[in-house]
């Protein structure tokens, strides 16, 4: 039996091999996701329902205050559907970001004791949030049925792409933050504040058109394209703006690769610093 020799050397930067390695370790990735989901809802009375209740209540509160009282326009769709779609992606993005910055610290006991590609920790964490997103989306179907809307085929076909964009964006930003967080714990304090601000510069509770001729500024935020496409395609109210979506895709890809590169650079010292 011929074994491949493993060479341990000082300098190591990121390369295609890193992604191959993640593929080799996909079982562990799966186990991390499975562990997080299992553990998260242990000793809770309603378990996974929490993934549904949180966005639902947020939707109700937002609908009352922003939809009914403040009368924020919602591109001709009932405000609850409008805002719930936004909340789905928003919660996925913000909770991934908030947690993945901390995952290396919470998994410090693993990082300092055993080898595996460190990249899978933040990736697994974000993948866990996808499961929550899946359960929360079921409620969206019920809300749509309640308002007599049928989901358009385009929206369902487009969903994987939109999820991929959000996933890459969340992982990319998460990688950058977790790399910084290992050395500077300031991230922990800055992050909640940062996420709060992000909510207002992302068209979750209002349509991008509200900004009038300045709405292009919002397009810098990759989540703008995702949210617009999600709402438009699922309800069939407007054609998909491929240019905007393509721009979002490019933006998150850059974010992702910058994240990977930064992460790999600090990765070598994780075990020494954590």
């Amino acid at each position: 039996m011929r074994e491949r020799a493993l060479v341990i050397k000082p300098k190591k930067t990121w390369s295609l091999d890193d992604f191959k390695e993640i593929w080799r370790y996909r079982e562990l990735l799966f186990f991390f996701v499975w562990r997080d989901i299992k553990v998260r809802y242990k000793q809770t009375a309603i378990g996974i329902l929490w993934a549904v209740i949180q966005p639902f209540i947020t939707m109700v509160v937002f609908s009352v205050f922003f939809g009914t009282l403040a009368k924020i326009p919602s591109e001709g769709i009932p405000y609850p559907i409008f805002v719930y779609t936004g909340i789905l992606f928003w919660q996925f993005f913000s909770s991934s970001l908030g947690d993945s910055a901390n995952t290396l610290i919470t998994n410090a006991s693993l990082v300092t004791k055993v080898y595996f590609p460190r990249l899978i920790i933040p990736i697994a964490d974000t993948a866990t949030k996808l499961v929550d997103l899946f359960f929360a989306s079921i409620v969206l179907l019920f809300i749509m049925i309640y308002y007599h809307y049928t989901p358009h085929l385009m929206g369902i076909l487009l969903a994987p792409l939109l999820l991929l964009i959000s996933f890459l964006g969340a992982v990319g930003a998460g990688l950058i933050l977790s790399a910084i967080n290992v050395k500077y714990r300031d991230v922990r304090y800055a992050l909640p504040f940062f996420i709060q601000i992000l909510l207002f510069v992302t068209p979750v509770i209002y349509p991008p058109s509200i900004a009038g001729k300045y709405s292009w500024i919002l397009a810098i935020n990759p989540m703008t394209g995702v949210l617009k496409a999600a709402r438009g395609s699922l309800l069939g109210t407007e054609p998909v703006n491929w240019a905007l979506l393509g721009l979002s895709f490019v933006a998150v890809s850059i974010l992702f690769f910058v994240g990977v590169a930064l992460f790999k650079r600090t990765e070598r010292y994780f075990a020494d610093i954590v």
């Binding site: 074994e3 493993l6 060479v7 341990i8 050397k9 000082p10 006991s109 693993l110 075990a271």
Partner: peptide, 24 residues
């Protein structure tokens, strides 16, 4: 777990390390 500063180590085979019982 941590990289060396200089030199190299070659391991010819499947490696498992037990730095702690019950890691994970």
């Amino acid at each position: 777990i941590t990289p060396p500063t200089e030199g190299e180590a070659i391991l010819r085979g499947r490696v498992a390390s037990l730095l702690e019982v019950g890691t994970g």
